[in-house]
Design a protein around this nucleic acid. Structure first.
Lengths: 209, 209
DNA sequence: CGCTTGTTGATATTCTATTCACAATACCAA
DNA sequence: TTGGTATTGTGAATAGAATATCAACAAGCG
């Protein structure tokens, strides 16, 4: 048995694995069965070495003549990054961004499903929005425990961010993806990923300058 | 004269500068005039050392007793990351994500403005959407040259991504912020930042697992 | 004055990520 | 069989970021 199944993978590698898989699905759809590191690298704007290194880290071996077997590779990536029984996600804040993510995501990944949405606008609550039941924010705790959700995507207004984050933590959430412009702090053991759109625009503006 | 004005700043530092500034605006609004590294660090979920090192890199010095002068710091960050005469941005794809970004952004930064939006849906084009004139995608080249735009935010469907990216490059755009799930490659000298929502969700799911 | 506290600025260290360089292998063509 | 080409796998070097550590300094206080 490989030593890699338990070892921590570098964060960047995990991100790339997710993208390799998506690209490989496309290749399968086009009828390809094998792929070389440089092909995959081209499609993702990386170097072949980087691709090979990533695949090495997850313990996958290709052949010098045929490259990598796409089907096997996709399967292995699934073993590594998917959770066996699947994971439930909620999305808090059904503004434009919340709806965008929902529609992006719905039906794309079979091991991950967005099971509920929340908002504080009564016009949106207690009905189906984008195929997902939308509840009022006061019901977060109930739904989280009933559906065994451990991941939440935060797309609420800046003003509401701290209050909602607290609710999520109280309800026992294990990971938060924060798309608001307000930085959060979470206790030890909770995973937090922050992504701020304004920051990324300003960064690009700096680079272009 | 400091040597830092020209030297390349680390990417992560640039991102944090953008966020420092936004937080500092809030502090000013609350009447604060000075701030210590540990205060700023707490607000951003960083260590004080990290804050001081960032400020060191941009050549700003505080005082041991009073910390940093917020007003001066904000001004210096502006000098570093803003472009003197301002920059114009367009947003291509006015789906939920495009509209979300537009409303997030409008009026927030005075040196950066979203001057136009594009879509291929005739229902949306040739009218004002979210305060911004929305044109049909065929008019990209005209508008870019007329308004001297050098940054584009891409929020179109996966299918349209490559074609639209090509149009942008042809029109002479200098920086692309790619929010589609399709990786792009750009020629030397063009800046590209990619951010893929599905990837970030899968990464979080891996961490939580 | 001398001692204590809290802060900055800077250097050194550790950790993470990427790239370089090349051995080993498989295939093909002559 | 042999030489040539294209590929993978990986140790070593390098680059990029985060963290630890500490001297120097300012202010308050006995």
């Amino acid at each position: 048995m490989s030593k890699n199944m338990q070892t921590e993978l570098p964060g960047k590698t995990v991100e790339r694995l997710s993208q390799y898989r998506r690209i490989l699905y496309n290749s399968i759809r086009e009828g390809k069965t094998n792929i070389y590191s440089h092909e995959l690298a081209n499609m993702m704007n990386l170097t072949p070495v980087q691709v090979r290194r990533d695949l090495m880290l997850i313990g996958y071996s290709g052949s010098q003549s045929k490259g990598y077997v796409i089907k096997d590779l996709v399967e292995l990536i699934g073993k590594i990054i998917d959770s066996e029984h699947g994971q439930n996600i909620i999305i808090v804040g059904m503004g434009n961004l919340g709806r965008a993510i929902t529609s992006y995501f719905s039906g794309k990944r079979d091991k991950l499903s967005i099971v509920a949405a929340f908002d504080n606008d009564l016009q949106k609550t207690d009905r189906i929005v984008g195929g997902i039941p939308c509840y009022h924010i006061t019901q977060i705790k109930d739904v989280i425990s009933k559906e065994t959700v451990n991941i939440a995507i935060l797309t609420v207004s800046p003003e509401a961010t701290h209050e909602v984050a607290k609710k999520l933590l109280d309800a026992g959430i294990k990971g938060i993806l924060n798309y608001t412009s307000v930085p959060l702090t979470v206790p030890e053991g909770i995973h937090l990923e922050e992504y701020d759109i304004v920051t990324s625009i300003e960064k690009l503006a700096y680079l272009v300058k």
